[in-house]
Structure formats: C-alpha cells, structure tokens
C-alpha cells in the first residue's frame, strides 16, 4: 500500500470535516492562550479533533460538537503529562525564523496571558473562551459544563484578579 493509499483509507465524515475546517483555528488560538506555546497548542488541538473523530458517531450527535472539542482541548491543556509530551515532540521540529515570527506576540500581550495562566484553572478557561473567541456566557457554560451563574462568577473573579495584576505591572490604568 502506498502512502497516498494509506491516507485515503481514513474515513472522514463530511460533517466532521466541516467541523474541523471551521473550528480548528479557533481551538488552536484558545489553547495557545492557555499554554503559551504554538506547537503545544497545535498538538493539543489536533489531539482533541482526533478524539472527536474516533468517537464521531456519538460526538456528532451532540448539540454542540464544537463545544465538546473545546472542552477536550482545554482539559488536555491542563494535563502536565500532555504538555510535556507535546513540548518534547516540538523540540524535534525545525522552526524557521518565519515560523517563529508567526507567534511573536507583543510583550504586553504575552504578560497578559502569563497572568491568565496563573489564575485558578476554571477562571483561566472562562477568560480565554470569552476574550479569544468572544463567546457568550451561556455558551461558555456549555463548554465548561457549569451553570451560567458560575460562568459569570468565574469571569468576574478572573477579571478582578487579572486587573489587579495588570494595574500593578503598569500595563493598564484601571480595571
């Protein structure tokens, strides 16, 4: 069997392909905020979609398969074991100057995300979903599996903590 034959053997339902094409960039961006590494973000996003594909008969019937993928990706980002493995694989890749430039963020923005990653995990996830994707409170609740009221509390607490740190660092004037 040739390589192209092997690739063509993979069954990819049309509905899954649409999800992958539509949501992949957003999931990478979301995980990037949570990990600070483009390579880790791509690896974990791909892992989340691979899991969705493996379980597509079930995931595809959910009200929000994209929400499920995000939940898996966020949980993978929490796993130190997973992050270590992704970082290990990333060191084997050759990163060109052009590729490095793609993920050079403004230092102030980098500081913002470093502070987000210091938040309690749930607060960090709610903040990332809201500011990376502009996701409304109800939808954040579906992704995280918590009530709307809980999301509001998480966002409020996250903003307060973040705001204090950013003011202290002189990155913003006021919360």
């Amino acid at each position: 069997m040739t390589e192209s034959d092997a690739v063509s053997e993979v069954q990819v339902p049309g509905s899954f392909e649409q999800l992958y094409q539509r949501e992949y960039p957003a999931v990478v961006g979301l995980v990037y905020g949570m990990t600070g590494s483009r390579w880790v973000a791509e690896d974990l996003a791909q892992e989340a979609f691979l899991r969705a594909h493996r379980d597509w008969p079930r995931v595809g019937r959910m009200a929000s398969p994209d929400g499920w993928v995000r939940r898996v990706a966020l949980n993978l980002a929490r796993s130190r074991w997973r992050r270590l493995r992704s970082e290990t694989m990333a060191t084997l890749r050759f990163e060109s100057d052009e590729e490095r430039a793609k993920t050079s963020l403004d230092p102030d923005v980098e500081e913002f995300w470093e502070e987000v990653r210091r938040l309690p995990v749930r607060q960090a996830q709610a903040v990332a979903l809201h500011y990376v994707e502009g996701m409304p409170v109800a939808e954040i609740g579906q992704v995280l599996g918590v009530a709307t009221g809980t999301v509001k509390a998480l966002l409020h607490q996250g903003r307060e903590r973040l705001g204090r740190q950013l003011v202290a660092k002189g990155l913003i004037d006021e919360i």
């Binding site: 992949y24 957003a26 905020g33 963020l105 102030d108 923005v109 995300w113 500011y131 502009g134």
Partner: peptide, 14 residues
Amino acid sequence: FASRAGKAASDVGR
C-alpha cells in the same frame, strides 16, 4: 487590553 490580547491569541490560531 483584554480584547487586544484575545485577538492576538486568535490570530495565532488563524
């Protein structure tokens, strides 16, 4: 500031 940071992360994904 947060919106700017969010857009920057989103751009990484794009």
